[in-house]
Amino acid sequence: MSEKSLESFQTQVSDLLIRHRSFLDVTSKFQESNARVNRALMKSVTDCGCIKVDAKKQNYPDNSKVSEWSAQLSTHLDGKLCDHCHDVISAEIGKNIFYLTSVCNLLDLKLADVLEKESDRLFTLGVYHLR
């Protein structure tokens, strides 16, 4: 997404956020939308079963480089989201982004600037950011 598209989205969010314009409302809605993303993910496992979580201790290879770890470490996920779960999770993430953008608007932060700064930081730190 280009910077112009992000600015357009941010303006659209500002124009549409009318009822819950209070900082307290927006931050609680942001937290609630994050919980809904997590709930949709869990339902993909527990209700639908299209994905499965197979978690165990990560074993970091002794004689490999940090740059090779991502190819050797597990995501603990098996399967693929079905169309229904994909749609539900995408919609919930979209709402979450809406409220994240609303927080940015209330704090007079440009979403594009926030993303650019994080990208620059990740680029500078490379694999040493270890998230």
Rank of each mutant, 00 (worst) to 15 (best):
M1H: 08
S2D: 11
S2R: 04
E3L: 05
K4P: 03
L6V: 06
E7A: 05
S8F: 08
F9G: 02
T11I: 11
Q12I: 08
D15E: 11
D15M: 10
L17F: 02
L17W: 03
R19Y: 10
R21H: 11
S22G: 12
S22A: 13
D25Y: 07
D25H: 13
T27V: 12
K29S: 00
F30R: 01
E32S: 04
E32A: 05
S33K: 00
S33A: 04
N34C: 03
R36T: 03
V37W: 00
V37S: 00
N38C: 06
N38Y: 05
L41N: 03
L41P: 02
L41D: 02
M42W: 07
M42D: 06
M42S: 09
K43M: 11
K43S: 11
S44I: 02
T46G: 04
C48D: 12
G49A: 07
I51L: 07
D54G: 03
A55R: 11
A55P: 07
K57I: 09
K57F: 12
K57V: 11
K57T: 09
Q58L: 15
Q58A: 15
Q58C: 10
N59Y: 15
Y60H: 12
P61F: 08
D62F: 12
D62M: 08
D62W: 11
S64F: 12
S64P: 04
V66F: 09
V66R: 13
V66D: 05
E68P: 09
E68F: 05
W69D: 06
W69R: 09
A71V: 08
A71G: 14
L73I: 12
L73K: 05
L73S: 03
L73M: 07
T75A: 04
T75Q: 04
H76P: 02
L77W: 10
D78G: 08
K80P: 03
L81H: 07
L81M: 10
C82R: 07
C85Q: 05
V88K: 00
I89Q: 01
S90E: 02
S90Q: 02
A91I: 01
E92Q: 01
I93V: 09
I93Q: 01
I93S: 00
G94S: 01
G94D: 00
G94C: 00
G94T: 00
Y99W: 04
L100H: 02
T101G: 01
V103I: 14
V103E: 01
C104I: 05
L106E: 06
L106S: 08
L107F: 09
D108E: 12
D108H: 07
D108T: 13
L109M: 13
L109V: 13
K110T: 13
K110Q: 15
A112M: 08
V114H: 06
E116I: 10
E118R: 14
S119G: 13
S119W: 14
L122V: 14
L122R: 12
T124N: 14
T124M: 15
T124G: 10
L125W: 07
L125H: 13
G126R: 14
G126E: 09
G126F: 14
V127H: 14
V127W: 15
V127I: 15
H129Q: 14
L130F: 13
L130K: 12
R131P: 04
R131D: 12
